[in-house]
């Protein structure tokens, strides 16, 4: 049996990715370029928040200190969050939102495919259940990258700019630290470093079809596994956690 604290750390990384990206997508509500996309973004956001609920609930039980999903979602400061830097990046224009989604969907698909074979049955179940949703998310975002990249000059330029602005956030996704190593050794976690080649192949296939150039690997940022985030997370949390901060333990 692995150390509960290590499993907790691992689970909140997964749950935080889903929750923060779900919150970002929710920000599009009322602002999407067309009604059809308004619904699509909200659906995808809700899928992600659903994953986060399962993962944070499980994390709270593993930790055994009485923290439930809401406690973990609404009563943690930014340095306690473990989501990837990629998912907290602001929505920007529609191309940037789609580029962020495209990178995360492809990564999450590979990660959850591996996690669906986890020896931790509960985690494997959550991953397997989520995989169908993620397949759809991946198709949706890939279609948009192609449509915008291979669209007009304006949409092509915006899409190219978006992938360049986010490119340096990708290396962090494939880092392995002590928590990842311990979970891998226990048969619970997956080896994200080993997913990079498959990820690159999938991404590059779409970028080619979209007539987009793969950016140079000229910069990268890291830090989310130690709780070092970009300034954007604080603003996101201020909005998401406002009610529970202003009126602690308020109930519906």
């Amino acid at each position: 049996m692995s150390n509960p604290q290590t499993l907790f750390d691992y689970l909140i990384r997964l749950g935080d990715n889903s929750l923060i990206l779900g919150q970002r997508l929710a920000e599009w509500s009322g602002h999407a370029p067309i009604l059809e996309e308004e619904l699509a973004l909200a659906n995808i956001g809700l899928d992600l928040i659903g994953q986060a609920r399962m993962l944070l609930t499980y994390a709270g039980e593993v930790e055994g200190k009485g923290r439930d999903e809401d406690r973990l979602a609404y009563h943690r400061d930014s340095s306690d969050w473990r989501n990837l830097l990629l998912v907290e990046q602001p929505n920007g224009d529609f191309a940037k939102t789609m580029a962020r989604q495209f990178f995360f969907d492809h990564f999450q698909y590979l990660q959850y495919e591996a996690l669906s074979r986890s020896t931790d049955e509960r985690l494997a179940g959550i991953a397997a259940k989520s995989l169908k949703e993620i397949s759809y998310h991946r198709r949706h975002s890939s279609d948009w990258v192609i449509r915008l990249g291979d669209g007009t000059k304006e949409s092509h330029d915006r899409m190219q700019k978006a992938i360049e602005e986010l490119w340096g956030f990708l290396p962090e996704m494939f880092d392995m630290d002590a928590v990842d190593d311990a979970m891998l050794a226990a048969g619970i976690g997956d080896d994200v470093a080993s997913l990079r080649d498959e990820f690159d192949m999938a991404i590059e296939k779409v970028l080619r079809e979209a007539t987009l150039d793969r950016p140079e690997d000229s910069w990268s940022v890291r830090g989310s596994r130690e709780g070092r985030h970009s300034e954007h997370l604080g603003y996101l949390l201020a909005e998401m956690q406002f009610l529970q901060r202003a009126y602690p333990d308020a109930k519906w």
Partner: peptide, 20 residues
């Protein structure tokens, strides 16, 4: 009905708008 740039997009949008 719905608006879409092509048939593929119409299909995915229809999934989101009409089968959720």
């Amino acid at each position: 009905s719905l608006h879409a740039s092509d048939a593929e997009m119409a299909l995915t949008s229809a999934r989101d708008v009409y089968t959720r």
